[in-house]
Structures are given as C-alpha cells and as structure tokens.
C-alpha cells in the first residue's frame, strides 16, 4: 500500500482520486434515488396554512376563510361540495353518555354507523368504537375479545363497547405538547387536525385506547362521504394525525343525537345534557347502578356504563 507505484504499472488499478470521484457520484445518485419519493408529496401546507394561528386565537373571519379553504379542498378531492361548519358549544350544556351493558348485544352497528357518519378511513380501517366481548361475571378487559363473529349475543358473554370517554381530567390533553387537543366548555375533548403534529403522546396517555392514528392518507369512497362536516369533528383528516370520538359534535351541538345512539338496535346507548335534571342521562345517573371504566386512574369520564337494575 505504501509503496510508490512506478509509471507503466498494471492497468487494473485506478488512482484514488478517480475512485473517490466515482464513489461520490454514485453515492449521490443512490441518495437521490432513495429520496425520490419526496417528489410525490402533494400535501405540503400552503403558506396560509403554515402561518395560521391556533384555533382558540382565530377571529371569525379567519375561521370563515379556513372553513372555505377546507370545503374547496374536499370538493377538489371528492367531487362533493360539503357543508363545513364549526358549531360552538351550547351554553349550559355538558354532554354525557351512558351505555347499558345489560342490553348491548355486541352487533357492532354503532361501529359502522360511526365510521360512516365521521368519514373514517375504510382502508386502513379506523374505528372509534371497539366492542369488547367478555365472560359474564367480571369486567376482565385484558382477556376481552374484539374479533368475535356470527350471531350475537353469545351464551355466557356480555359486550362492552369502548370509545372516547371525554374525561373531565383528560390525560391526553395534558400529554399534547402543542395544544392540538383540548377540552371544550361542553365537555367534548376535541382535536384540531391542522395543529396535530402526530407525535402520538396522547395515544400513549389515554387509558381507554380511544385514540386512532392515521398512518396513511384516509381512504373514503366518494359516494360514502358525509358532506355534513364539522371543523373539529368529521372533516377528512390528513395523513399523520390523531383522531377519536367527539360525540358527533357537528350533530350534537345542533341538538341531534350522535349517530351511534340513533343506530343502536337495542337502545343501549343514551346521550344527553348532564346539566338538565330531566334529561335521560341525568335520570340514568339518578336511578341506575352506574360505573365508570378504570375509575382508579382518576380521569372522571363523562361516559357511564349502567345495568338494568
């Protein structure tokens, strides 16, 4: 190696300089090839999106412009002109949810009504509600099955659907490093999909496994898109953000029931205003045996399970 080469040496060697030049050129080629998928990135934020303020700092004009921008984007992507709104919380209303696990038969209709209402990705599949099948006699969530099939209810089992519990002390809100998720005055924990950085800390913090991540761009058939959209709820999500149940706030803040409540064939799902003493949810809490899931973690959910007794 250290020997000086003399002119006229064998031709099967090249100079180190020439070798380095060739090596650098081919390394640059390989790197460029490896990075070539970047040229397909189409959802880079526009300057307006990049410079916008946090949701809570937006003026009504800002909000209007953003809603208009989203509507235009949806129309471009799906060929449907959506009605994108941002209904505010109703004063004097705190939403609560109750689910009768003595009546739920585990048919999963709520899961699919929710997916349809909230424009959830069909493939990869995103579902806010997970129905757990458990043996009667205890609440053993760890051994619960989610992949049962066929006729339900099965002998010896009961069913407990789990979705976002809209906790009063929500660990996900505390975990978010950029305040992309927060609790609204009516109790709904919302996510601004344009503010979420996709770090998934909230998913790790949630004791109920209620949050879902868009690992890929959501795929929704054009003919199944629900055009009634809310900014904080069911507008199409970009890739790389977290989403979850929001009590169908684009419906419930306009006075309607959530989609899962309306579809439940057994009437196990109950929804209402906790602050109204005559609402069904207030009556359930007054007269039924109610429990909350994982009470010991201190999240104080607004989602209650109850029995027939």
């Amino acid at each position: 190696m250290s020997e000086e080469r003399k002119p006229g040496e064998p031709a099967n060697e090249i100079s180190r300089r020439a070798f380095l030049a060739a090596l650098t050129t081919s390394a640059v080629t390989a790197t460029a090839a490896a990075l070539s998928p970047l040229k397909d990135v189409v959802d880079l934020p526009t300057l307006e999106e990049f410079l916008r303020l946090h949701y809570k700092e937006l003026t009504p004009e800002d909000k209007k412009a953003i809603l208009e921008r989203i509507a235009a984007q949806v129309e471009k992507d799906y060929g449907v002109r959506p009605n994108v709104t941002d209904p505010p919380p109703i004063p004097g209303v705190e939403f609560g949810y109750a689910l009768n696990i003595g009546r739920c038969i585990g048919c999963r209709k709520c899961v699919y009504a929710c997916a349809k209402e909230n424009n959830q990705s069909r493939n990869p599949q995103i579902q806010y509600i997970r129905v757990l099948q458990m043996r009667k006699g205890s609440i053993d969530v760890e051994s619960a099955k989610t992949d049962y099939e066929g006729e339900v209810p099965k002998d010896g089992f009961y069913y407990m659907p789990v979705q976002c519990h809209q906790c009063r002390k929500a660990p996900c809100v505390k975990a978010c490093p950029v305040q992309a998720t927060w609790q609204e005055p009516d109790g709904i924990v919302v996510i601004d999909y344009n503010w979420c950085i996709g770090c998934r800390y909230c998913m790790a913090a949630c004791p109920y496994g209620a949050r879902r991540f868009n690992f890929e761009k959501p795929e929704i058939p054009k003919d199944e898109l629900n055009p009634e959209m809310g900014y904080l709820s069911n507008r199409p999500r970009p890739k790389g953000v977290v989403e979850k149940c929001h009590f169908c706030l684009h419906r419930t803040r306009k006075g309607k029931y959530p989609a899962c409540v309306e579809v439940c064939p057994t009437g196990s799902r109950k929804f209402g205003n906790l602050l109204d003493p005559d609402s069904e949810i207030a009556n359930i809490i007054k007269t039924k045996r109610v429990y909350v899931l994982k009470e010991e973690v201190g999240t104080l959910p607004r989602f209650y399970y109850y029995f027939n007794l």
Binding site: C107, R108, K109, Q125, T146, D147, V152, P153, T266
Partner: peptide, 15 residues
C-alpha cells in the same frame, strides 16, 4: 325476548 343478530364484521386491527 330480543332476537340474536348477526354481528357486523370484526375490526381489521392491523392492516
């Protein structure tokens, strides 16, 4: 008594 129903398909947990 409420008759059994056929459950909708289970979730595709890992695509």
């Amino acid at each position: 008594i409420f008759k059994p129903l056929k459950a909708a398909p289970p979730p595709h947990i890992n695509p």
